[in-house]
Nucleic acid binder design. Sequence first.
RNA 1: GGGCGCGUAGCUCAGCGGUAGAGCACUACCUCGACACGGUAGGGGUCACAGGUUCAAUCCCUGUCGCGCCCACCA
Length: 922
Amino acid sequence: MIEKTYDPADVERRMSAAWEDAQAFRAGRPERRGAKPYAIVIPPPNVTGSLHMGHALNNTLQDVLCRFWRMRGRDVLWQPGTDHAGIATQMVVERQLMERQQPSRRAMGREKFLERVWAWKAESGGAIINQLKRLGASCDWSRERFTMDESLSRAVLKVFVTLYNEGLIYKDKRLVNWDPEFLTAISDLEVQQVEVKGSQWHIRYPIEGSTESIVVATTRPETMLGDTAVAVHPHNDRLKHLIGRTAILPLVGRRIPIIGDDYADPEKGTGAVKITPAHDFNDFEVGKRHHLPMINVLSVEAKLDLDGNTAFLEDVPAPPELDETLKLHGVDRFAARRKIVERLEAGGLLVKVEQHAHMVPHGDRSGVVIEPFLTDQWYVNAKALAVRAIAAVRGGRTVFVPKNWEKTYFDWMENIQPWCISRQLWWGHQIPAWYGPDGKVFVAETEDEAVSRALAYYAETEAVTPMQGHDMALDPDSRAPFLTRDEDVLDTWFSSALWPFSTLGWPDKTPELARYYPTDALVTGFDIIFFWVARMMMMGLHFMKEVPFRTVYIHALVRDEKGAKMSKSKGNIIDPLVLIDRYGADALRFTLAAMAAQGRDIKLATSRVEGYRNFATKLWNACRFAEMNGCATLPGFGPQEVQETLNRWIGHELARAVRETTEAIEAYRFNDAANTVYRFVWNVYCDWYLELAKPVLTGPDSVAKTETQAMVAFVRDQILALLHPFMPFVTEELWSVTAEGGVARDGLLALTPWPPLSGFEDDAAEAEIGWVVDVIAAIRSVRTEMNIAPAMQIPMVLAAVAPETHERAQRWSDVIKRMAKIADISIADAPPPGAVQLLVRGDAVALPLRGVIDLAAEKARLEKEKAKAEVDINRIDARLANPDFIARAPEEVVEADREKREEAMARRTKILEALERLKQVE
RNA sequence: GGGCGCGUAGCUCAGCGGUAGAGCACUACCUCGACACGGUAGGGGUCACAGGUUCAAUCCCUGUCGCGCCCACCA
């Protein structure tokens, strides 16, 4: 029995349980072992995450694909899991420690802290998974993975060591993007450029042994303490004579050379640029070219670091002002900036200050200004790995949908920079590198291996023998003292990059890996093409020798109603869980799918969700109607063999809807698919089929009635199937409560085959029912226009119609009477005088309403119709009169125009006749 | 500075070479046993603007004006 009202929350709870009990989404179910696999790996959400609209969209689309292909018989694996999210998770736990006034991370030490994070993960890490389940995600939950699982961590180590041994991972001392808030390096991608209104200061640097000076412009005066040169362009006529001279760095007294370098653009600033190799990416390059010293004047927290900074003091002849400068030690960079400017001004060295809007790098997580900082970090030679990743997309082995994202992918890949993968965090995969006392590095998958390598190395070398007196080979615990492990962990994206194969068991040769890799589709937002997609391509191709996925479907961003990006700070976040509570998961899913047009952002209006909730209710009620009318599928019922025209017609319409929906999903046109089903269910099945079937269904028992009952049930089942990828909960519920062949169903809709694509075509049925639909629509329209009382029954006369039309009318008299409020139908040679006349597919239908309606109104209506017909005729005539049109337009188009003209002419003739008759009455 | 995308009904969006569609909102009418989260019938658009290509342009090209996003080391 179908409940009277549709309660989404109740349905969702029960259907989730039903799927879980049946393990419906298990990959490799026995009955599908012979089937072709279909695999998708989920973009793993952060363990710290909670479901936002982006997740809702992303996972709805994946679920549509998975449910669709599952119903089409494939052995579907939707691989779920979460990401350990280094910085985010560490932050969450540290904040928690602070709130509870517990010892800080550093106070408790690495080991204790990590225990704490694991405890946090066990307690609160699963929230997002439950939220995905509420959305209806049909993942194989038994295969849930976490990037720091033992087996995934093994994959990480293996990849790191292999790439290191291949020379594709290396350690380097160079400038990195340093986050002074989190005290870690971050990659280029984690840096957001933000436009900031700042100042540009012009500062005078005196020139040694002269009264001359050189003026430089800078937005970062505090870094001048680390200047080691001033550069001018070699062809700068105004300044090139200074090349080779020495400037005296104000406040410090350091003697720095004035060098010639192309980098100094004569058009910019003053034409002379201060060179601070340790604090600017460009200056770093200039410094390398000219072998300049690199003087770091900042601490990891971005405070001035001067006291005891030997590099800073080196070569300084200690001018009187140095003492004052040294007092800036430990001062924060921005405070230091102000003080330095003040001191320069006091010393008369500040030439001018200009307002200056410029882009300043910020940490995407911390939000603080990023410092270019000179440190040792680990890098991946991304350029080498990119070669095959580019080739795979060029060669079409992986395709982007929509295609234009390939350009973005190529642009980035072709200009790819070394990927900084070390992070100065604790939560993550610790880098498998150990250092000997002499700094010699040993990279190995295990500590044991590192030790034995070290032993072998030091046995051969005379250099250092730290293990004298120890018997290392026998006592593993005593090995630790002489090797120290690298403290750093890997960028979270390093492990994410392995996701398509690490989740399948790699480096072991598992059956899952063999069966599901490469995966079929990856569904994600464009914002992580670089972070994730590109890197999976590189890693997948390098380690699996095959692309990780055949198609990358890039979906849009979900924005708020006004088109603004949703963000906490703007307070415009629409919480998908709130929408699920209010309208149901099905309504939310349908909305997202219906709005997921390729290449466009989604501006989410909750009115849309409400509209689709109404749609779910409509479906619910249609199913109730079927049930109440005894509609159930019969054993051995052959839907393609039905005799009744109405039933053949709905089969015809159904097949078309199935075809269009199928093609749309296959092409990732989710919105087209959703709209097709929507229209079929509401505007065809409910509005016409059920209405037209009512007389039969409520009439006496007959062969026709039995057949119609069965067909109503059959089409309803097909609808449930078609709709299931979009609205899994209601459809599963409605499926489960309806019987099949007289007995309760034992199978799940989720595992039922997709509707057949063909076998129902019937143009004759289409012509007949189409005519009936048009008659009813035309009569209804006139009734409103003529202000005929809604309940009033009126007669209908078929005037001078072909015998087939007459027969049609007879066959459908019941529904026509019922739906158009017609009292009786008769035939006549001509329309009676004063009747309202309608044209339906060329036939004249008259409504004898003399005395009921206002003749003047009818005249006006006919005049309007006539004018419309004439406009049509004129337009077509104009076109047909154009010789170029006849000559150049395709024949079908010209032919269609001729037919349209004829049709319009006939229409006009009938209207004129009707007007004539009207006159006679007057 | 490069690149991408968008400007279509009041709102949110489809369509993208043969004279425009949906949802919501709006108007009128309808308690007819599936559904008022409903039904029926309507109103509403010079498809941002200007040129061009074409027999034909909302749809292709160029430019202009607005809006958004991504990338880039510019002092």
